[in-house]
Structures are given as structure tokens and as C-alpha cells.
Design a protein around this nucleic acid. Sequence first.
DNA 1: ATTATCTATAGATCTATAGATAATGC
DNA 2: ATTATCTATAGATCTATAGATAATGC
Lengths: 209, 209
Amino acid sequence: MPRPSKPLISRAATVTASLEIIDSEGLEAFGLPRLAKHLGVRPPSLYHHFSDRSEILSAVAHEIIGATPMPRRRPGPDWPEYFVTFGSNLRRSVLRHRNAAPILLQHLPHDTLTERYEEAAAFLEASGVPARLHIRILLGVERLALGAALVDAVRRPGTGSALSPRVDPATRPTLARALAENEATSGQLFEEMLRNFLRGTTADEIESV
Amino acid sequence: MPRPSKPLISRAATVTASLEIIDSEGLEAFGLPRLAKHLGVRPPSLYHHFSDRSEILSAVAHEIIGATPMPRRRPGPDWPEYFVTFGSNLRRSVLRHRNAAPILLQHLPHDTLTERYEEAAAFLEASGVPARLHIRILLGVERLALGAALVDAVRRPGTGSALSPRVDPATRPTLARALAENEATSGQLFEEMLRNFLRGTTADEIESV
DNA sequence: ATTATCTATAGATCTATAGATAATGC
DNA sequence: ATTATCTATAGATCTATAGATAATGC
């Protein structure tokens, strides 16, 4: 059937199918033949919608980051909570597709992130946070969120606990003790880390202003 | 020449050669045939030293992280500087081989990291930092360092400046202003971010103790 | 005329194994 | 006997292009 009445392929369906493969079978399983099969078409047909393989991967990365909701919150003195929410949302978006983490690194969608940072910067301004802190806050939250997400993504299992791959108390006694001391899940730790970072970043100003 | 007098291949030489290829030609260029050529041998000979391709990549990841020096510093009240150094060293190790970032994600050498965390945890204990903060500090520094390194690794060029891929002042006015406000290099920002994180993490304790 | 699929296929490439061979070291 | 290379090769696999074909929409 050379041209179907209704198109069989769309960009959105291709991205969804790619993520389904990567989520359930791993990044190694991804390839054009595999993807085409999942869509019920032949591999060359994909080239009608994407110029090459890497364009598909970029669209996938774009989709993962683009699914991050922005916080709905009014500017004001409790502005740090906006960033706790933002960071957590970003982290969660990445972790939702943990097998895709390396793709995200190679095709980090700067435009999508930049769009969000513009909104966040405007929020900071409206909250009266000093301009010299803006970049520090934006980049700090980004790095904590992506760092936490990528590291968590890679420590495979869905254990809520913080450092997953069993630490041997015989050879790492101090670290094992530190882990035993901790009761928070890695999500809770992450929020706390964000709050602490924000508190430390504004510590000088708050006293001096 | 079926067996040479002196072995042509060693694990260390293989890892070095791999990094040379990845650093200068990119991750895509890496492969067993390419690697073998660089070492002056035939591809199958590599299987005498590694069980498969993925074992080579693990060794590469191990080498990158393993090259991170631990701070030489005595425990004491200025213990946060130990972690500023540690974080910076870790970040620098990763950035030294930025093209290898995706490998690092897929083959993160937990053992090598764990070894270092054990030492750092002992340092915290010796400095009298409360045990419940240990995991928060270790994981926070790890995530900031890896997050910063991976994100920087991916924002290609060696510009010292913070957010590289040109932000358009027309469409992102607030963000552009925030960037203009900033004079620090991403290395400097990173150290500051670490200090602020550590300050925020200990803020409660310092008053209460 | 354009669009969205298909078939066929070039061509590259890669991972891994089997089995031969000669140097080494006990 | 063991070690470290080689040659030869199976076999899979993948990306991308060329050209045919039929449905669509102007």
C-alpha cells in the first residue's frame, strides 16, 4: 500500500514509540528497524518525517524536558519554594525515562531549557531577588536537578533509598554508618538539598538587606 | 607475527588509546576496529584482554573517575573547603574527557566513588560534623559536581562563560540581563555553589550547637 | 502535482568466535 | 603447556538512498 488514506507516522507518534522502546527494552534496543516495527511501517519511511536518526533522538530529548511543568506560584518572599518545585519537576521528568539519560546528555535541548529559565528569571525579578543572584540560582538548581536525576537514573533499581548498590560495612564502615543514619528517600533528600542550597545562596543578602 | 616478544596490548594502554580517540574524534568514532588500529593490532586481539566491548568502556569510566585526587587537608572547622576541593576535582576529572560523558553515565564506577566517599565520611566524622548531615553532604556534593560536569561537558565550546549557547536578548530579555550581570566563569560559579550549598546545609546546626 | 508509503539494496560497520601459529616460561 | 598475537569469517545489523506506486488535495 504505497500511500495510506491516513498517515501511519507522525513526529509525535514516533517520539512516543521511541520512548516506549527505550523505557521497556533499554537504550541498546533502540534503532530504526526496531522503531519502524513498533510503528508498523518499514524503516525507510521514517526518513520522510525525520532527516536522520539523530533528529529522532533530539525530538525524544525535547519531549522529555518539555514534559516538565513549570510551578504555578506567585512571586513573593517564599520564592525559594518555586525553585524547589521546579527542580523536583525537572528531576522527575528525567527519571520518568531513566534509560534515556545518555540521549539527554547528547541532545540536551537548550532552547526548551532556556525558555523555562526565562520564565524563572522573570519570577526572581518579580520577587525582588537581587539580580546578581539570578544566574547563581538558575544554574545551581539546574545542576542539582540534572545531577541528581542522572545519577539516580543510573543507580538502576527503584529503591527509594539513597545510595543503592549495597555498601559493604566491613570495607566501608564510616559510609555504612552514615547511610544507616539516613531515613530520607532520595526524592526527599533532593528537596532538602535544594532548600539548603537556596538558603546558603541568599544567606549574605538576607542579613545585609 | 603470532606472538610478539613484548606484548603489544595492555589494559592501561587500551584505556589510554580509547580516551585519545574519544577526546580527539568524539564518542561516535570509538569502536573496536578503530581502537585496534590506534594500538597497531587487529581487532580480535583485544578479546584476549577484555571479555567484550562493554568491559573496555567500564575500564575507561573507571580511569576517568579514578584520576580524581582526594584533597589533602586536616579535619577541622574549615572542613567545608575539603568538599569544595573534592567537588572541583571531580568536576575537573569529568571535564578533562568531556566527550566521554555518556560513557560515564552508562558505566558509572560505583566502587571507585564509594571508596572516595568512605574517606570523605571519615573526614567528616573527624571534623566533628553531626552524623545526620554526612549523607546530605556527600550526596549533595556528588550531585552538584556530576551535574555541573555533565552539563558543562555537553555545552560544547571551551568558553569560560556560564551559559554558552547564545541567549537571544530579544526573546529572553530577563535571562539575558541575568547573564550580563554575571562575571564569574563556570568554574568559579561552581565553587561558589558548593560553598553556598554547604553553608545552607549546616546553617541549622551551627546555631543550635 | 504532491505526499506518504513501499521494495530493493548498497555499503558500511561492527561484535565475536574458531582455529592457526610462534614466542615464552616452566 | 601457556600466552599473545594473527587470519578468516559468520552473522547480524544498521543507516541511508533510489525509484516505484497509489492516494490525496488543489
